[in-house]
Nucleic acid binder design. Structure first.
Lengths: 289, 289
DNA sequence: CAGTGGTCTAGACCACGCC
DNA sequence: GCGTGGTCTAGACCACTGA
C-alpha cells in the first residue's frame, strides 16, 4: 500500500480468527423458510444459508456470509439488517446463534446496533483495528518484495533494560538478533530483537526467509498481546549510513515493543528504527460501546 | 506518566463501557449455595454475588467483581477460575450469563480460556487496548496540568484534502481550529483540526477549558471509530519556533486522524505535530483469538 | 403503541487437552 | 476416560426508540 508521497504505509492485518469447529451429525434439516412476508430488509435477497454438516460453527458461517455481503456491496452502508428473530426463523437458527454472528461483526466495527431501531451497516471507511503485526508480512502483503539481512544472531547476557522488558534475570542468556529490512532493495528499517534463551531455534537462514512472528507461531507459541511505544528522534551518523539516509539528524520513527504469549510470558522485546521518509504506522481504532 | 528520560508518554484510556441496565423485579432469590465441594478454585473465597434488584446487568456485575478481584490481587495471575457450570450454580446464575461475564474479560485481555483446561488469569503486564484518546484528557490524567491556546478558530472553505478526509464537498464550509497545547507551561504539540460546518458550536472559551472530544460527546455525538496514521518528519523553522525547539530540522512526531461517529459520518479531521523530544505514543494490542 | 435489541434461563451435545 | 470450554436451542421478559 503506497502513500501519495510514496512512503510505505503499514496497514497491519494478520491471519487470525481461524475457524474452529466440530463435526455435527446432519440432523433436522429445518427449513420452513417463511416467504409469506413482504420484507424490505436486504438480507432476504441474500441467499443466506448455513451448512449444518460443516464443521464450521453456524454463527461463524453466518458472520462470514454477512461480512462478504457487506464487502461486495450487497449490503449497503446504512441499510437495516432486519430483526434478529425473523432472521433466525428464516435461517432455521435460534436467536442467540444469530446474535452471536451479528455481535462478532459489531466487534469488528462493521455493524452498529441500536435498541428500538435495528442493526445497520456502518458507513464504510472503517476497516479493522490494529493487529499484532509483522513488518515482513505487511510488506509482503503490500507487494513490496521484502528482504532481510541478518546482521547479528548471537546469544548474550541480558542487560538490565532487556532483562526488565523480558522479565528474566539480569545476565540470563538471551538471543540477540539485528536485521536490516529492505523493500525493493532499499533499506527501510533496522530491527533489533531480544528473545529469552532457549525459547526458539532461530537460524539465520529462516530469519532471512520470513518474519519473526511467523517463526514464533510455527514454533507453537500463541501470541496474545503486546505493549508498544512509538516515537521519533534524529538519526545518529551510524544509523543514517545503515539506512541510506543523507546524514546524521535525519528524522527516524522508533518503535519499541514487548510481546507476550497467552500465559503472560514475554517472548520478544524489539527496538526498531524506521526511515521516517518512507514509513508511517496506520491503524484504526474502535471505541468500545 | 513520565518516561525515564522525562518525555511525556501517552497512555490512552477513556471512560467507556458505561453500565447500562434495566430494572428487574426482585424475583427468585435463588441461593442454594452448594458448599459441599472442597473446591480449590479461588473464586469460592471471593464472596462473589449479584444483586438482582440492581439495574446493572447480572453479567456486568459479575465481570466487575472479577475484574476488581484481579486488580487487587485476590485472583493471582495464572490461577484457574473454576469451571463455568459450578460457578453459575454457586451464584444462582445460568451458564450463558456467567460465560458472558467471562467473555467480556477475555475480550479485555484479562483472562484466557483453554478448552480442556479452564479459564486462567493472564500474567499481568497486559492492560487495555488503545482507545480513542484526547491529548487533553491524557495530560490531565497524567497530572501534567494541560493548557490550550486557541490560535485560530474560523470557518473556511474545505480544501480538496480536507474535503476528502471529511467526506464533504470541496469548498463546503468547515470549521478550522489551530491550538497550541502546553503542559507545565511548555509547548507540547501543535494541533490542527477541521470539523464539518454546523456540526458543533465551538467557542474559543470552551476549547481552552477542555478537549475537543469531550465537547463532541457533550454535544451528543457518539464517537465510534477513527483511522489514524503516525509518522515523523523534520520541523520547519516556523514549527520549531512555535514549539520552542532549537531550530529547523528537529524531529517531530506527526499524527493524522479522521474520527467517525456511529453513523459512519466523519466528524473530525486532525493533523497534529508533537515534539519528539517530549512525546511518544504508548499502547497495547490484543490478538484476537 | 408496536417493534427493536438487551438480558436471562435451563437445558443439550460436542471437541479438545490431559491423564 | 474425564473435565473443560465451545456451540446451540427455544423459549421469556424488559428497556429503548420512534411513529
Amino acid at each position: 500500500m503506497l502513500c501519495p508521497d510514496n512512503r510505505t504505509v503499514l496497514t497491519t492485518e494478520l491471519p487470525v480468527n481461524i475457524s474452529r469447529g466440530y463435526a455435527r451429525p446432519v440432523s433436522k434439516p429445518v427449513a420452513k423458510a417463511a416467504q409469506d412476508k413482504p420484507a424490505k430488509d436486504p438480507t432476504v435477497a441474500l441467499r443466506l444459508g448455513v451448512d449444518r454438516s460443516s464443521p464450521v460453527p453456524l454463527y461463524f458461517q453466518l458472520a462470514q456470509q454477512l461480512e462478504a455481503a457487506i464487502e461486495r456491496g450487497a449490503l449497503t452502508p446504512g441499510s437495516l439488517l432486519g430483526n434478529e428473530i425473523e432472521l433466525a426463523g428464516r435461517l432455521g437458527l435460534s436467536r442467540p446463534t444469530v446474535r452471536q454472528a451479528i455481535q462478532s461483526l459489531v466487534d469488528k466495527g462493521l455493524l452498529v446496533r441500536r435498541r428500538g431501531v435495528g442493526t445497520q451497516v456502518v458507513h464504510s471507511q472503517v476497516k479493522r483495528p490494529l493487529e499484532l503485526s509483522s513488518l515482513f508480512d505487511d510488506l509482503e502483503a503490500a507487494g513490496q518484495r521484502p528482504e532481510t539481512r541478518v546482521l547479528r544472531n548471537t546469544v548474550e547476557a541480558a542487560s538490565a533494560e532487556v532483562a526488565a522488558a523480558l522479565g528474566v534475570g539480569e545476565g540470563d542468556e538471551v538471543q540477540l538478533i539485528e536485521r536490516l529490512r529492505l523493500a525493493h532493495g532499499e533499506p527501510m528499517a533496522y530491527l533489533t530483537n531480544h528473545i529469552p534463551g532457549g525459547l526458539l531455534d532461530l537460524d539465520t537462514e529462516r530469519l532471512e526467509a520470513t518474519g519473526l512472528y511467523r517463526l514464533m507461531r510455527a514454533a507453537g507459541l500463541t501470541l496474545h498481546s503486546a505493549r508498544q511505544s512509538v516515537g521519533a528522534r534524529a538519526a545518529t551518523a551510524d544509523e543514517a549510513e545503515r539506512l541510506a539516509e543523507p546524514g546524521a539528524g535525519a528524522p527516524l520513527l522508533t518503535m519499541r515493543r514487548t510481546t507476550f504469549d497467552d500465559t503472560g510470558r514475554a517472548v520478544e522485546f524489539g527496538s526498531h528504527v524506521y526511515r521516517a521518509s518512507r514509513y508511517s504506522f496506520e491503524f484504526q481504532l474502535l471505541v468500545r460501546p
